[in-house]
Design a protein around this nucleic acid. Structure first.
Lengths: 167, 167
DNA sequence: TAATATCCGTTTGGTAGCAAACGAAATCGG
DNA sequence: CCGATTTCGTTTGCTACCAAACGGATATTA
């Protein structure tokens, strides 16, 4: 374990080990989990400040647009699920996107409790313009990883998602 | 690349490739970045629903308590920095923690613009009880990773943090 | 088929989070 | 010194997010 590889982040980690080293703690898991969260925050902030703000979109708004683009028209509950948002939150996100003209809601005739959400023309145009640029940002953020490392990272995270997600 | 390793998550990924495959996109980066975010959400939710809610703490509140535990009394700006929160957000988190009696704010005599934040006795007791349990949760969430893989994951994420964080 | 239970999206009430404006306090320049 | 600038933490206004309560619509069952 080359523990001195990156001088920028490990100082704090070493301090923590000194402070808490007396206790029987699982440092490997601690560092893995806390870095997941820190990385996610950094990535989100960068994307929001960069591309997304130009289009007036939050991370959640972008995700919703993107899911609708890939999957097409969707029922509200499924959309919430796919976007990994509670249904209450999704209502708000869709409301905002509707105001912006990116999305439209359509009542389902067969079951009047239900609603489907779909992209408008403007929404489609926006996501088609936006996504390639977003993807460039993604590339920048993992620029220090080789292709193999990216796949490795994705695979390791996949396992965490499965474990942590099955609450 | 064994792309069929985990049947649970890859279906959507394959669909995406089918839908977007015609475009010249960087899928490796896309999957790495989006999995970072999904993993972070899963991890946070699980921790909040599990241990943290028992102590009436949010993720941010926990982080703040933890940082104060490791680093000791801190000035507000440094604390915000270390917790990776804006100073405005930190004011709110500290206000909540203060209400709960976990933390106290002390004006700095030498510079009356400044304030230091520190754990109260109850705060210290709480984090000392809480952290080992939180750490067990962390362990559970990466239970499907070997020790080497955990360190690998932490290291890959460290590089992402450095790149994405230097905005 | 009427009462009950379940299901669906929205609303509500709360915390969290950010950026930008703010006001008080310290520092700097002349 | 004294005015202008910078540096703090807080406040403000906004979006996002969740859980739980809600109310209308559909299913179930007796």
């Amino acid at each position: 374990m080359q523990n001195r590889a990156d001088p920028r982040l490990l100082d704090a980690e070493r301090l923590i080990q000194e402070r808490l080293g007396g206790r029987r703690l699982d440092f490997d898991s601690m560092l893995a989990v806390s870095n997941i969260y820190r990385a996610a925050t950094a990535v989100r902030r960068r994307a929001e400040k960069g591309v997304l703000s130009e289009f007036g979109l939050s991370w959640g708004g972008f995700t919703t647009l993107w899911v609708l683009w890939v999957w097409g028209e969707m029922q509200s509950a499924d959309l919430a699920d796919e976007c990994d948002l509670s249904k209450g939150t999704l209502t708000g996100v869709v409301k905002t996107l509707e105001k912006q003209g990116f999305v439209k809601r359509t009542p389902v005739a067969a079951d009047r409790r239900k609603v489907t959400v779909s992209l408008t023309g403007a929404g489609l145009e926006t996501i088609e313009q936006l996504f390639p640029r977003f993807n460039l940002y993604e590339g920048e953020m993992v620029i220090n990883l080789s292709a193999t490392e990216k796949r490795e990272l994705a695979e390791l995270l996949r396992r965490v998602i499965v474990t942590a997600g099955s609450s």
